[in-house]
């Protein structure tokens, strides 16, 4: 039932959009056959050294962290990314092996169909054809709708500044274009974070699970979540124990609003014609009423 309705709206919407500008554009990310680059983060390999954080701060010219990189006390509280830290490492208890806590990196997942980019009205958030979701700061008006939309709460806003920007990991886009890997990948001493195309990384992740079926949970976080993401995770313990949201579903976020957007040209065509018709009828009615009253 709902599928039929959606299909109908899509067909009607496409017919309408050919007539009218301002109709919804198809997400560029949905184009088939494009190989996105991504990261595979194997949380079983991470030793919590924070080299990735350090490399990230250096690469992006971010300030020194509140707790120095060599201080272990940093793991006593759960941290979130901030305008001054695009990636942060958190420690979680390991129920399988209590002596070896799990370290999880948190940063932008570079969704295949990002909510932030579909929310942005100035294309400041942009999904590139290489895969990274980048931020064109000169276009941004600071409305923070990307923050409302992002299912992972990744974009962060500079509330303390009179000339604020949104800040988040941009996958070291400049390095990528120069043929280099992101700084955090180069810095990782344990190869806990590896770089590749999304297809390669999925193959590697699956192989690891197949070869060590008891070690890993049989799930690759980011393979299907909100339509898939460039950055994906492997874990030995269930993801919900590592602070991941597992209730996001597999629907790409832009699809949540596409139904509404397809309805827009529909209303633009139907409403004026209906209104003109009603107006015509109402005038007719009033004229008749007049005749009656006069007669």
């Amino acid at each position: 039932m709902s599928v039929n309705r959606r299909d109908f709206l899509k067909i009607a919407g496409m017919a309408g959009s050919s007539l009218l500008a301002g109709a919804p554009g198809r997400s560029e990310a949905a184009v088939a056959g494009v190989e996105f680059y991504g990261l595979l983060i194997d949380t079983t390999k991470c030793i919590g050294c924070r080299s990735c954080e350090e490399a990230c701060n250096e690469q992006n010219g971010l300030p020194e962290p509140e707790v120095p990189f060599d201080r272990e006390s940093v793991f006593e509280t759960k941290r979130d990314t901030s305008p001054g830290a695009y990636t942060v490492l958190n420690r979680f208890p390991n129920e399988k092996d209590p002596d070896n806590p799990v370290f999880v990196r948190r940063q932008c997942l570079h969704c295949c169909q990002p909510a932030c980019a579909s929310a942005c009205l100035t294309k400041a958030m942009e999904k590139t054809k290489e895969g990274p979701v980048i931020y064109n700061k000169d276009r941004c008006m600071g409305c923070r709708y990307c923050m409302i939309a992002c299912p992972q709460d990744i974009p962060k806003f500079e509330y303390g500044s009179a000339f604020p920007y949104i800040r988040k990991c941009i996958f070291c886009y400049d390095r990528l274009k120069a043929g280099e890997r992101p700084a955090c990948v180069d810095a990782c001493p344990e190869d806990a974070t590896i770089f590749g195309t999304r297809r390669e990384l999925l193959e590697i992740a699956r192989t690891r699970i197949y070869e060590n079926p008891d070690k890993y949970v049989h799930h690759i976080y980011g393979e299907h979540e909100v339509g898939g993401s460039g950055t994906m995770y492997l874990s030995a313990v269930p993801f919900e124990q590592l602070g991941f949201r597992t209730d996001l579903g597999t629907t790409p976020y832009p699809e949540h609003t596409s139904g509404f957007l397809y309805g827009v040209p529909l209303v633009f065509v139907l409403w004026p014609s209906i209104l003109i018709g009603l107006n015509y009828l109402a005038e007719d009615r009033n004229k008749e009423k007049n005749h009656e009253e006069e007669g």
Binding site: C120, S258, L261
Partner: peptide, 16 residues
């Protein structure tokens, strides 16, 4: 920007 700029975020409800 979304009015006269060259950066139309057509897929955004906020643009509309």
């Amino acid at each position: 920007n979304p009015i006269i700029g060259n950066s139309f975020g057509l897929s955004s409800v906020l643009f509309l």
